[in-house]
């Protein structure tokens, strides 16, 4: 069974995004970049499925600039077998990403695609569902547990108010939520080994996929700032202020 794991290079989740003064976007120059944390969880899940013998091959794919090779090397160091970079300097919208992935899936024929539920830059949480739609595949989003068996995946999903379990026929799209697993740190020997694993690079333009943006970014601004408040000395003080000053009790 082959697992495809799309991964995205994004701003490191510990770094605070800063809006550019000219309001054209977020300043990513000289900012630490990492693999999207939900994609890390997806890679971990795929590697665990392989270690358990449920999967035979894990292929990581990324769409991004030349530096996205580092992100793919991280996936390889975690245990992916090989990687594909669709190289572009364009910032693709979720629908375009889904169309590019559809093309790659046509070439690779994976049995299951496991990907992060959202990327922490655009915060759309849309690509997995869009990919499932255009492929006509079933989807199991926001997964907190995944079991593979012959031709099926049983997926526990995080839903409003609790958990839902679905069984989907393969091939299918699974998107990873926070509690699916805790991703491993790649060991130094594995980082060294990853450098020798195959990483195939294709130019986005060579795929012939329509990736034209549908949305024009008019401006990117800072959210209104909250003025810092006051410190209170005691709990009694706090209750008094909430009652009389803020009027919320």
């Amino acid at each position: 069974m082959k697992v495809l794991v799309p991964v995205k290079r994004v701003i490191d989740y510990n770094v605070k995004a800063r809006v550019k003064p000219d309001q054209t976007g977020v300043d990513l120059a000289n900012v630490k970049m990492s693999m999207n944390p939900f994609d890390e969880i997806a890679v971990e899940e795929a590697v665990r499925l392989k270690e358990k013998g449920a999967a035979t091959e894990v292929v990581a794919v990324s769409i991004g600039p030349v530096q996205a090779q580092e992100t793919l090397r991280t996936a390889l160091a975690m245990g992916a077998d090989r990687a594909i970079l669709i190289q572009t300097t364009d910032d693709l919208e979720p629908l375009a990403v889904a169309k590019v992935l559809q093309k790659i899936i046509g070439e690779e024929s994976p049995d299951v695609v496991i990907m992060g539920k959202q990327a922490i830059d655009g915060d759309n949480a849309a690509t997995g569902q869009m990919l499932a739609a255009i492929l006509g595949w079933p989807q199991a989003t926001f997964a907190s547990a995944v079991e593979l068996s012959a031709g099926k995946a049983k997926v526990t999903r995080e839903v409003d108010g609790g958990l839902q379990t679905l069984e989907v026929d393969l091939p299918a799209i699974v998107t990873a939520d926070l509690r699916l697993n805790e991703p491993r740190y790649a060991s130094l020997p594995n980082i060294m080994k990853a450098k020798k694993k195959p990483l195939d690079i294709k130019e986005l333009a060579s795929l012939g996929v329509d990736t034209a943006p549908r949305l024009k970014v008019v401006k990117v601004t800072e959210p209104p700032k909250r003025a810092g408040g006051v410190k209170v000395e005691t709990a009694a003080d706090l209750v008094m202020k909430l009652k009389t000053e803020a009027g919320v009790l």
Binding site: D123, A126, Q129, A132
Partner: peptide, 20 residues
């Protein structure tokens, strides 16, 4: 979580962007 589950699927089927 239900809206986020279904809406992108509808958008992609209509071949339009989702504005999230």
């Amino acid at each position: 979580s239900q809206g986020r589950n279904v809406s992108p699927r509808i958008a992609a089927k209509l071949d339009v962007a989702q504005i999230s």
